Simulated scan of single mutants.
Amino acid sequence: MARQRDPQRRTELLDAIVAYLAEHGIAQLSLRPLAKALGHSTYVLTHHFAGKDELIDAVLAHLDRRQKERLAALPGPAEAGGGLGDVVRASWAWHMNEDLPMVRLLHEIEGLSAAGRLTGPYVPKMLGDRAGFVAGVLRAHGVPEEAALRKATLLNAAYAGLQIDYLTTGDRERVEAALDELADTADSWTTAP
């Protein structure tokens, strides 16, 4: 008999799991300590997620969805004359001021995947989907179709590199000066209205 999963309960559980992972990391993730920290039995986790791999995939999908919702809520090109640079700066402000633990968690996950210590299809898919999503934002801001995916890949890589630099060095002033240059570069990609 198939498991009945309550989508709302699963979302609430994912929020709690993400908060736990943001504090404890994912490299040494084990279901028993996670369940105990959340005040549940391991059965609750395995009811909603068939195992650790499915749980990690669900966490990544949850984080990705959250990132996309936030990016979609940022000002569009017609709102207050907002350009791509404004989107880059607003996204950075949100990540650094409100979402830094999640940024740290995402980079840990990506690093483990790059090192071959976290397997499964979701991390590469998430990165590819993110590039596609950002390409859509770029197109909405006037970047030509034939350049949007390439520029989205470059923007994502530079932005992630700046995040890692800040997380590693703590040198916010230097990193944000570089971010301003990245935002200016993004503005230069748009076509004049």
Rank of each mutant, 00 (worst) to 15 (best):
R3M: 06
R3Q: 12
Q4F: 07
Q8D: 14
T11I: 03
L14I: 12
A22C: 15
E23P: 03
E23N: 05
A27G: 13
Q28Y: 05
P33M: 14
L34V: 05
A35R: 04
K36A: 15
V44R: 13
H47C: 00
H47W: 11
H47Y: 08
H47L: 07
G51V: 05
L55W: 02
L55H: 06
D57R: 09
A58P: 01
A58T: 08
L60R: 03
L60M: 14
L63C: 15
R66Q: 14
R70M: 14
L71I: 15
L74I: 11
P77V: 08
A78I: 10
A80Q: 14
A80Y: 06
G81L: 04
G83H: 07
D86E: 14
V87F: 09
V88K: 07
A90K: 12
S91H: 12
E98G: 10
E98F: 08
E98Q: 15
R104I: 02
R104L: 03
L105W: 04
H107C: 05
G111T: 13
G116K: 11
R117T: 03
L118A: 07
L118M: 11
V123I: 08
P124E: 02
M126F: 04
R130I: 04
F133M: 10
V134D: 00
A135P: 00
V137C: 10
V143T: 09
E146Q: 12
E146H: 13
A147D: 11
A148L: 01
R150M: 11
R150A: 13
A158P: 01
G161Q: 07
G161I: 05
Y166A: 10
G170E: 04
G170V: 00
G170K: 02
D171W: 04
R172A: 09
A178Y: 03
A178C: 07
L179E: 02
D180C: 07
D180A: 12
E181G: 12
D184G: 10
T185D: 00
A186E: 01
D187Q: 06
T191R: 15
P193W: 05
P193H: 09
P193M: 02
